[in-house]
Computed example of a mutant assay.
Amino acid sequence: MKSLFFTGSILVSSFVLAGCSTNVITKEDHANVLIEKDKAEQLDVSLNIAAGKLHVSEGAKEWVEGELEYTTDILRPNVSYKQSGKKGKIVIEHTNKKFSDLKGPNMKSNWDLQLSNKVPIDLNVNTGASETHLDLQGLQLSDLNVNVGVGDTTIDLSGDWEQDFDVQLSMGVGKSTIILPKDVGVQVKSSKGIGHSEFRGFISMGDDVYVNEAYENAKIKINVNAELGIGKADFIIEE
């Protein structure tokens, strides 16, 4: 049984154009993505979006479910899955990076993805010129790495967590909002960029280190290393 399915107009029109070089805005294409569960006990998920909008949340009954929309073949993402031993490796990415000639209000590249909460996930997100919303509460994160280029980014890590994990953030140009839990220990180590940063609900420990009130006695801890770029970055403890 195959583990990966695409459905929708992507099968009819976009694959016909595969390999062609075109910067012409075409009609909107749509693909449903389904990566089925198998015997993997851990997932390594990489999401590499060069341009557009990315929304990620939990809720998939299989490993990954979601929808991809785009208006030109250049923005058609590639989806791959491979199981090796106990780990499944998922990559969804823009492989064509030549977007300089794409213009116009009708250009669209929207990824709306749901991930499974049944196994631990190492999640790597790399964005170019993108609007990004990562609603990660409810997942079993074992590691999170987010590298932002240009655009506004929201990362929601609020809620309860059952294991420690590390977060690596490299924030570029734009506004970033990172929401962190109140009842799980949180430590943020930041390196200041040109922009402005705020730490709401945190206790300053000096040397650009901030913790929440639960950190000292918490059994579960999230350790965040943040490289702050140009723009504004808000680190907020959930209410």
Rank of each mutant, 00 (worst) to 15 (best):
E131Y: 14
E69T: 13
V211Q: 14
K182A: 05
V224Y: 11
V186D: 14
I203D: 11
L4T: 07
H196A: 12
E41M: 02
W63Q: 01
K37L: 03
I178K: 10
L134H: 10
N106H: 10
G8T: 03
F165H: 02
L68F: 08
I92P: 05
N225T: 09
D164E: 06
A60I: 11
N126I: 09
K82I: 09
S116W: 08
F99T: 12
E213S: 15
F6S: 06
M107V: 15
V45Y: 02
V224I: 10
S21E: 13
S109G: 08
L144V: 01
F202R: 03
T153N: 13
G19L: 04
G174Q: 00
G172C: 10
A40W: 11
K82F: 03
E198T: 14
A31Y: 03
L4K: 09
E239K: 09
D101Y: 10
I194G: 12
I25D: 15
L4E: 04
I178E: 05
P120C: 12
G104N: 13
L47M: 03
L134E: 11
G172H: 07
L102I: 14
D183P: 00
I230T: 06
N110Q: 09
T154N: 13
H94T: 03
Q187G: 08
S3Y: 10
G88K: 00
D73L: 12
E65M: 11
D160V: 11
D44Q: 11
D183G: 00
I90A: 04
V150N: 12
L113D: 03
D207N: 15
K103A: 14
V167M: 07
I35C: 02
F6W: 15
T154S: 15
L228R: 01
G138W: 12
V188P: 08
D156F: 12
I10F: 07
V146Q: 06
V184E: 08
N145K: 06
P120A: 09
A18R: 13
V125G: 01
H30F: 13
D207Q: 13
W111T: 07
E69L: 12
G185R: 07
D164A: 07
N145H: 10
S3H: 12
K103C: 04
D101L: 11
Y215I: 00
I220W: 04
S197L: 04
A18F: 06
G201W: 14
F15P: 08
I203P: 01
Q137G: 15
F235N: 02
S84C: 03
Q137E: 06
S9M: 02
L11C: 09
I178T: 04
V45T: 06
T177M: 02
M107W: 01
S170E: 14
G149W: 01
L11P: 05
V148N: 04
I35S: 05
G201C: 11
G193L: 10
E69C: 05
R76P: 00
N225L: 09
K61C: 01
E36G: 03
T154E: 15
Q187L: 15
E239H: 09
T95I: 12
T26V: 09
I203Y: 00
L47F: 04
D208L: 13
A50P: 00
